[in-house]
Design a protein around this nucleic acid. Structure first.
Length: 204
DNA sequence: CTCCCGATAT
DNA sequence: ATATCAGGAG
């Protein structure tokens, strides 16, 4: 029986600035893809000041393999510039302040809060959305509303670890395309198998 | 809502 | 071939 107690990222980073950048890069990409380019990126640009003055073409070459590479290059350079201009290069431990940074949305901000400072926050990504929906914990589709529902269901002390555990659960059991309901510890507590009658359960 | 966009698993 | 991957901006 897996217990899903993992509450830290698989993303490699050394400080809040790096965490912020790799989290932006992780959009619609696997952590593994990001971890491949992160060391190269941070070797060349060690501080937000360095990245703020970076040549976009150089950055594009480094982050290319993570997909959305033009967009992500613009995002992280502007992000670094925003950090300099707005917060003097320091990553603010506050959701409303983080969201003001270019390329940083509610999900990215929540990841950084929970991971870097253990501040209670729930990051609703594609996994959390799918899993909590299937489990019947929310009927919303808007991430911000899902976040509200989950915050009402769980004590604050549980918030920061929630996302990682649902993501882990979503990766190895409640998969997007073919949920393994037959080997799921939530079987009997979840309405998904009843509704969809083990679609794709053992067929190949 | 669409667009951004490569890597990987199936 | 196609779906999916720790999304955010226009």
């Amino acid at each position: 029986m897996k217990r899903y107690q993992i509450s830290h990222t698989a993303l490699d980073y050394q400080d809040a600035f790096q965490l912020l950048v790799v989290t932006v890069l992780s959009a619609q990409t696997t952590d593994e893809s990001v971890n491949k380019v992160a060391p190269i990126l941070f070797a060349k640009y060690q501080t937000s000041t360095d990245l703020a003055e970076a040549n976009p073409e150089d950055v594009e070459k480094i982050v290319y393999s993570t997909g959305f590479y033009r967009q992500k290059t613009r995002s992280i350079i502007k992000l670094a510039q925003g950090l300099e201009d707005l917060y003097d290069g320091e990553v603010p431990p506050d959701l409303d302040l983080l969201v003001k940074l270019p390329g940083v949305g509610r999900k990215t901000a929540s990841v950084v809060l929970a991971e870097a400072w253990n501040i209670p926050a729930i990051a609703v990504d594609t996994h959390v959305r799918r899993v909590t929906g299937r489990l019947g914990l929310t009927s919303e589709s808007d991430p911000a509303k899902i976040e509200q529902d989950l915050k009402a269901l769980y004590p604050k002390s549980a918030w920061s670890g929630l996302s990682m555990r649902y993501i882990q659960f979503g990766r190895d059991t409640c998969e997007a395309k073919r949920p393994r309901c037959g080997e799921c510890e939530m079987f009997g507590l979840c309405e998904w198998p009843d509704r969809f009658a083990f679609a794709g359960q053992s067929s190949k």
